[in-house]
Design a protein around this nucleic acid. Structure first.
Lengths: 338, 338
DNA sequence: CTGAAAGCGCTTACAG
DNA sequence: CTGAAAGCGCTTACAG
């Protein structure tokens, strides 16, 4: 047995080399699993390393290497379970591939977002996955790209420039949802919640298209904007109920506004699914057990996150490849609310 | 103006030094905001650095420094908004103090948890905040402590050993909730959802204590365990309704089981708050707009996260201090469900 | 297979 | 205030 000196400071590759009676090059090669080293020697080195409590210092290795296995993930709104599920999907996939995640929550603050992006750059993130905060200027894309750090933009497009993107086909989703309500006989269909922006505009466009396909014109009074939160949906629904002639159903900007709407309807004693129909958008897991369970346009948030991570991995291995793009295909999930 | 050479590789401190006509020591000191350098010189250096697109390489600095501004945060279940709110609280506070967060989601897998902890160690995390996965052995605490990395355990205690801990006073919370129902005249109060473990045991104990204080004995049939999920709460409630004599109310293990219970009751046409009363636990934001809004034991998840981050900061600045502890004081939040 | 040497980008005494 | 030098823990040719 090699002697096992009690070390004050953390053991380094040099300590392992000494204890194992080999050179530090050898130790380094063993730790990297190089085939250059005889298995017998490698086993000995690993054993000694474990016995003296050696811990690989990945940051030192990566400094030398000019590499990084850290991916920055920037999320705008974790209070919305949609983004949480997206985050979980991203992290799951990245962890599988041996990456580790720098996570930052911007809470829709463009200033904070800028700070964390710079911080991730200083920390040598190998790539950045960004769900942009509301109001993020399209110029941010070029800025980050100029850093030479691979960037995947998620959920919210950022201008017409060229960048890797993972999102969903929003217009076809709301088209599908609205058509479902119209086919069921509804003639007064509201569009509930959300605020202007690329995602909102596409979802609203799908709603309008469905009405047009049924030779109906859209009544602006039925479009009630709000913050994309439960509270927002709750308030927007109150406003919608004041519109005459009465709406009998609504397509919602997203699931949490729909959940807020459910609360508002429940409060008034309206039985959702019978007296009033609600369709959400996102396919958040919570909707399976809301009261009542929510019919929603499912874009599978978890898979969307995994797909975004997949794009990142793809981009990292092919830096020069053409622009990458993932668009989730929406699927209508029928439940009790509509 | 200094010449601005187009660099192929990222600029280093040496490039800045050359371009600014000073030594690299000077540049380093400027970047650290050292008062040793005349302000005039410092301004020049900063200007040159910006003009050649220099980016501080924090990892290199920290390797030399033997320091780290990265905190690992390990979360067991992000599908539960309680833990999401906790995470957001942690990250917010850490970011304020200039730390950056390595986030890992274990999804209640002890094996995955072990992997990510080792990974964080290799990456030189300055500290680790851990919401342990179910079934985590108490020995994990000593293991991580032996690494010399400050550890804050959250939400779920990990044995009787000595460690910094942030959680809540669970027994007093359910005591309060149960007492509320008893005082309102309920005589058949269920305890819904959750599985054995330190948190569960304490919450159940509070429930029992309240019954005892009312000179009632606990009916084991009224205790319906389940996974701590919406689905779990949904199923547990169905079982509870089969118990005779009928329960008229339930204290839930946590908010998401309560939300699942709301769904199950809604499905049966039971008006919650009138025909049946439900109390949750956690004070998750969603409960303000559930259908109906949920009466719950509020332990302010976001603040709990911030407090845990606070303990970490405290520990980092006082490594030798006595064990730190934060216990959230529960507050009953009265809403429509009970 | 192994050892000596240089270097990743920074910081930090130390001497001027 | 500044410059030369050593070193954080690793990797990587290169010569043996």
């Amino acid at each position: 047995m090699a002697k096992i000196p009690a070390l004050q400071r953390p053991a380094t590759i040099l300590d392992v080399a000494e204890a194992a009676g080999v050179s530090k090059s050898t130790v380094s090669l063993v730790l990297q699993g190089s085939p250059l080293i005889r298995e017998e020697t490698a086993a000995k080195v690993r054993e000694v390393a474990a016995s003296i409590g050696y811990v690989y210092n990945r940051r030192a290795a990566q400094l030398r290497n000019q590499s990084s296995n850290v991916i920055g993930v920037v999320i705008n709104d974790l209070m919305n379970p949609f983004f949480t599920e997206v985050l979980v999907g991203i992290e799951r996939r990245l962890a599988q591939e041996g990456f580790i995640t720098f996570m930052a929550h911007t809470d829709e603050s463009v200033e904070l977002q800028s700070k964390v992006l710079h911080s991730m750059r200083e920390q040598n993130a190998a790539g950045i996955v960004l769900c942009p905060a509301l109001g993020t200027p399209a110029s941010l894309v070029k800025e980050v790209q100029a850093w030479g750090i691979p960037l995947i933009v998620m959920v919210r497009p950022l201008g017409k420039g060229s960048y890797d993107y993972a999102g969903s086909d929003n217009a076809s989703g709301t088209l599908m949802a609205t058509k479902h309500l119209l086919d069921a006989g509804h003639r007064r269909v509201g569009f509930l919640g959300g605020q202007s922006g690329p995602v909102y505009d596409d979802r609203l466009a799908g709603y309008r298209d469905a009405l047009r396909a049924h030779r109906m014109k859209t009544d602006p009074a039925l479009i009630c904007q709000s913050l994309p939160t439960r509270q927002g949906g709750y308030e927007a629904l109150q406003r919608l109920l004041d519109v005459k002639p009465m709406a009998t159903s609504a397509v919602c900007y997203n699931d949490i506004t729909a959940l807020g709407a459910l609360a508002a309807l429940g409060e008034r004693g309206v039985i959702v699914g019978r007296d009033f129909s609600i369709v959400g958008f996102d396919g958040v897991l919570d909707t399976a057990h809301s009261n009542p369970p929510l019919t929603t346009v499912d874009i599978r948030p978890g898979s969307l996150g995994e797909a975004a991570a997949g794009l990142m991995l793809e981009r990292l291995s092919h830096p020069g490849a053409a622009r990458l793009r993932y668009l989730a295909t929406p699927k209508l999930l029928l439940r009790a609310s509509a």
